[in-house]
Simulated assay, not measured.
Amino acid sequence: MIEARDTGSPAAGRDGAGKDFWPEDKPRRNLPNPKLLYGGAAALVAVVVIAVVAVVVLGGGGGGDKPAAKALPTAYTPDFSGDGFSKIAQRTADSRAITEGEAFSADAKTLKQGKYTMTLAASDLTSDCKSATWGARLQGDLAKYGCTQVVRGAYVSPDKKYVGQFMVVNLASQDGSAQVLRDLDRATGAGWLTPLQPKGVASFGPGFTAAYASVYGHYAVVTWVERAGGARPDSLNEMIDVSLVVENAGDFLYQRLDLAGNGAS
């Protein structure tokens, strides 16, 4: 296990990550605790080799038609705390289905934080949870825990240096979202969510990528980021900072939390 503390991050040490969508008296996204990134040093060495090969094969960042088949993140950090989302721990308190207009609103088209800007380049909202995932065990748990929707958005920086995936899995309860986070640990071999492939950048997934997953009540929320082409970042703080930008796409879930608190769903 590799522990990566974001002490060098521009966002470190603050109780909020820049001005958020929510007013000061509303629930706000908590900065993550130090990220615990899974994988051994030997795996990292192997990934560097893979990343170099990927850049050569893909022409140093040319467009890819599809993401890597059955891609898995090199580093994965789950957060099971669910802090602040107890009001929507059950879907019965938040029964309205997610809509495209809600998930991919004007506010979600361009995300900015610190020195990073990410623009929505591909999106998908499906009620067929199996079609957005791979792996028999993961797909079995999605069915068991009542998955009804998977939201996916792919973001690209203006210079095409970074690519990020934002994903939301709508489950019946927080027990289900926690189980999905356990399944996504690559050591389980359960499977993973399938990333989208934005146009004009190398295929997502064959090199170094980092994923961060959180329990938002009955939603499992995943951000998955890379340097385009899979090049190893200068530091893991770089991936953490990019992931925090992409996580801003989840502001609509805070609105749902607010509505549930007011007795609406």
Rank of each mutant, 00 (worst) to 15 (best):
I2H: 09
I2C: 00
E3L: 14
E3P: 06
G8D: 09
G8W: 06
G8H: 11
S9C: 05
A12V: 02
G13K: 05
R14I: 02
A17C: 12
G18P: 15
G18L: 14
D20P: 06
E24C: 02
D25G: 04
K26S: 11
P34Q: 13
K35T: 07
L36F: 10
L36I: 09
Y38G: 06
A41E: 09
A41L: 09
A41F: 12
A42T: 07
A43P: 00
L44D: 02
V48Q: 10
V53D: 12
V55D: 07
V56A: 15
V56L: 15
G59E: 04
G59C: 09
G62P: 04
G62F: 00
G63N: 11
G64I: 03
D65S: 15
A69R: 12
K70H: 14
A71W: 15
A71H: 12
L72R: 13
Y76K: 11
T77K: 04
P78Y: 01
P78M: 03
S86H: 12
S86W: 11
I88T: 06
R91V: 03
R96D: 08
R96G: 00
R96S: 00
E100Y: 00
E100N: 05
E100K: 14
A103R: 08
F104S: 03
D107E: 14
T110V: 14
K112S: 15
Q113K: 15
K115C: 00
Y116L: 03
T117D: 06
T119M: 07
T119W: 01
A121L: 04
A121S: 14
L125Y: 15
S127Q: 07
D128T: 06
D128E: 10
K130D: 09
K130H: 10
S131N: 00
S131W: 03
T133E: 00
W134P: 03
W134Q: 05
G135K: 08
G135I: 02
G140M: 03
L142K: 08
K144A: 06
G146S: 01
C147Y: 02
C147K: 00
V150Q: 11
R152K: 11
G153K: 10
G153L: 08
G153N: 07
G153D: 07
K160M: 00
Y162H: 13
G164T: 10
G164N: 08
G164M: 14
L171W: 11
L171M: 12
Q174A: 15
D175I: 02
G176C: 06
A178M: 06
V180H: 02
D183V: 05
R186A: 10
R186G: 06
R186F: 04
T188I: 13
A190Y: 11
G191K: 12
W192I: 01
P195I: 09
P195F: 07
P195N: 15
P198V: 07
G200I: 03
A202I: 02
T209F: 05
Y212W: 10
A213F: 12
A213D: 13
V215K: 12
Y216A: 13
H218C: 09
H218F: 12
V221G: 04
V221W: 01
W224S: 02
E226R: 05
R227Q: 13
A228N: 10
G230D: 07
R232D: 01
P233F: 12
P233W: 02
D234I: 00
S235Y: 08
N237Y: 00
E238F: 04
D241E: 07
S243F: 14
L244Y: 14
V246P: 10
E247W: 06
D251C: 01
D251V: 01
F252W: 13
D258I: 05
A260C: 04
N262D: 14
A264H: 14
S265T: 03
